Amino acid sequence: MLQKFGFTQYESQVFEALTGSQEPLDATTIVKYSGVPKSKVYEVLSRLVEKGLLLTSHQQKKKFYNALPLDTTIEKLTLEFETHINELKERKYTLPPSDEQVWSLQNKQSIHSLLHQKVQQATRSIFLSGWNEDIQSLIPILELKSKNGIKVEMLSVGSIHTDLKHIHILYPDEGHEALEQYQLVIIDEEEIIFAGVEQELWQGITTKSKPLVKFFTEFFQHDVALTEITKKYEKTLMEDEEIKEILMKLRY
């Protein structure tokens, strides 16, 4: 009966058993007449009580249940339905803003200017990696942002002078095959700018696409982890020619 109003089969069975009874019933008797398993009946009764469809009473250490009069139940369900209809009429639906587009950009100076602009706009966090000569000019802004409570973490290929606390330095080895000049900035874990050199020209992309932002954030953490592991165990790793060969092929 109640299933047509969005209730579960067990809730409907329990309510029908109580509606058909001339007197209150305890849980054991409800199991007998409703067909609801004993392991489920207390959970079902509790839900019906919360929904305001059952009356409860304690007699001689037993808890008894009684259904609301059918007319009262019908009135209650009607009022709730009308309330939901009015809420549906009054509710305004708007989709959250979403920008999944990937924008391309060329020219080193243009990329550099965009990086500065986005770093200035950061309000929570900045993750930055790239070659020291390309990111040196960002240091004053990054240090100021860090002092203002924004999380700043940087991976520099080559040594760099800064007062930033969370900085990782990768000293490239001559054997690195995949170590190419690049820059990566992740702003507030919501937007990325990634640029690199192809055929001696700087080319980059910027996007707020959530999958890409997640990918590049993990890419950044991957590079940080590799840098710190290599630094800590450099002697051991470089003595193993097989491991060294693998490391030299990795894209930092």
Rank of each mutant, 00 (worst) to 15 (best):
E143G: 13
T8P: 00
D223T: 12
K244V: 02
E200C: 05
Q120M: 04
G52A: 06
H58E: 05
T207N: 01
L115A: 15
L114Y: 05
K210S: 10
E50I: 04
T56Q: 12
S159Q: 15
S110T: 15
Q101F: 04
H116W: 02
L184Q: 07
L155H: 00
H176W: 08
T28H: 10
V49L: 04
I193T: 06
G52H: 02
I167D: 08
R251N: 11
K244F: 09
F81P: 01
K231A: 13
K76P: 00
T207A: 08
K76H: 02
M238C: 09
G130L: 10
A225N: 12
L164I: 11
A67L: 05
I243E: 13
M154N: 10
K118H: 04
T123R: 07
W131S: 13
T207D: 01
K118D: 05
K108M: 04
D163A: 14
H58S: 03
V102K: 10
T162W: 12
K76S: 00
E11L: 03
P140S: 08
K214W: 04
F220W: 07
I186W: 02
T78A: 13
S34M: 02
L144Q: 12
V185I: 15
H176V: 07
L18C: 03
N66L: 08
T8H: 01
F219N: 09
E189D: 14
Q22T: 14
E143R: 12
S46T: 06
H166G: 06
L164K: 08
L164M: 09
E50S: 03
R124Y: 10
L247V: 06
H168K: 09
R124L: 11
I139R: 04
K208D: 07
L55W: 06
Q181T: 11
K249G: 15
H176E: 12
V119R: 01
Y182H: 03
K231C: 07
H84L: 14
Q13C: 03
K89P: 03
L55P: 00
